[in-house]
Simulated assay, not measured.
Amino acid sequence: MWGFNGSCLQALKANLTMAISLMLVAFIVPLVGAQVPHWGSCPEPDVQASFNLKLFMGRWFEIGRLPTQFEKGGCMESNFTFKTNNSFRVVSSQIQKGTLRTIEGTGVIEDQMHPAKLGISFSYVLPYSPYWILSTDYVNTAVVYSCTDVLRVFHLDFAWILARTRTLPESAVDKAKETFASKNIDVTRMIATNQRGCDE
């Protein structure tokens, strides 16, 4: 009968964990499609100080984003409606192949010590996904970040530039990208959202 000492068992567990992790990467990456995985767990960037949830409410248009599997159309926008001191309703929409598609969800302040760390869920059975406000002036632009951690083996970044209008000057877009860069979030693959002809 074979015997294993403690170090052998630890090595076996480590190898098994690595094998499972690599299988997960091979299985999950094709599913997320547009996202680029990064090794390690999600980063923890600083968020907006003294964030005011009420002032953030209202209509925001998407100006740019990192590619995602769930946003394939144009004219993306989200309307946030205040509910309580730490919760809100969100209705997001996009036009895809000539059809208006909307989805409704709920949001909360997940960390009372950091009220800009919001969480949003579009399903009663799914947990809240991070929706962190890195920077906003409430009246013109908002810089938003989210991250999905997969077993602390790798993570997927999501990033958006939002505005109160359908377009922003290039200088404002550049400034928003600089905000991401200052927090070590790579947005070199960010794409502009098509906001043309949305109100016709």
Score class of each variant (00 low, 15 high):
Phe122Arg: 02
Phe154Trp: 08
Arg101Lys: 13
Tyr131Ile: 09
Lys97Gln: 11
Gly105Val: 09
Thr179Phe: 04
Cys147Ile: 09
Met190Arg: 09
Gly119Asp: 05
Gly74Cys: 08
Gln69Leu: 09
Val90Pro: 00
Gly73Tyr: 02
His114Phe: 04
Asp137Pro: 04
Cys147Gly: 07
His114Trp: 02
Met190Cys: 09
Ser135His: 13
Ile161Ser: 08
Pro169Tyr: 10
Ile109Phe: 03
Leu66Ala: 10
Lys72Pro: 00
Leu66Asn: 09
Arg152Ser: 15
Met190Leu: 12
Val173Met: 05
Gln112Cys: 01
His114Ser: 10
Thr99Met: 14
Thr68Asn: 13
Cys147Ala: 12
Gly73Glu: 01
Phe82Trp: 08
Val144Phe: 01
Asp149Asn: 15
Arg189Phe: 00
Leu168Lys: 01
Val153Ser: 08
Phe158Thr: 09
Ile161Asn: 04
Cys75Ala: 02
Phe154Ile: 03
Val173Cys: 04
Val173Leu: 11
Glu170Asp: 14
Ser121Ala: 14
Leu100Cys: 06
Ile95Glu: 11
Ile103Tyr: 00
Arg189Cys: 03
Thr68Ser: 15
Pro169Phe: 07
Asn79Leu: 11
Pro130Lys: 15
Phe180Asn: 05
Thr99Lys: 15
Phe82Val: 06
Ser123Trp: 12
Phe88Met: 07
Leu100Met: 10
Leu168Glu: 09
Leu66Phe: 05
Ser87Val: 11
Leu168Gly: 05
Trp160Cys: 02
Leu100Val: 12
Gly119Thr: 08
Leu162Lys: 07
Asp111Ser: 02
Lys83Ser: 07
Arg164Cys: 01
Lys97Val: 06
Val187Asn: 04
Ala116Phe: 03
Phe122Asn: 04
Met113Tyr: 05
Phe88Asn: 05
Ser78Glu: 11
His155Lys: 08
Ala176Ser: 10
Lys117Phe: 02
Arg166Ser: 14
Asn86Val: 07
Leu126Arg: 12
Gln94Pro: 04
Ser87Ile: 11
Val125Trp: 11
Ser92Gly: 14
Asn79Thr: 12
Val144Lys: 02
His155Gln: 10
Lys72Gly: 05
Ala163Thr: 04
Arg101Cys: 12
Glu71Gly: 03
Val173Tyr: 07
Thr84Cys: 01
Ala142Tyr: 00
Ile185Leu: 09
Val150Phe: 09
Pro169Glu: 11
Ala181Cys: 07
Arg152His: 13
Asp174His: 07
Leu126Pro: 00
Glu71Leu: 13
Glu170Pro: 01
Leu134His: 00
Asn79Cys: 08
Lys97Arg: 13
Ile109Asp: 04
Val144His: 01
Tyr128Gly: 13
Val139Pro: 01
Pro67Thr: 05
Ala172Glu: 10
Pro130Glu: 14
Glu178His: 12
Asp186Pro: 03
Ser121Trp: 02
Cys75Thr: 02
Ile95His: 06
Thr148Ala: 15
Tyr145Lys: 05
Ser129Gln: 12
Glu77Val: 01
Ser92Lys: 06
Phe88Leu: 06
Thr167Arg: 06
Thr136Glu: 07
Gly98Leu: 12
Val125Pro: 00
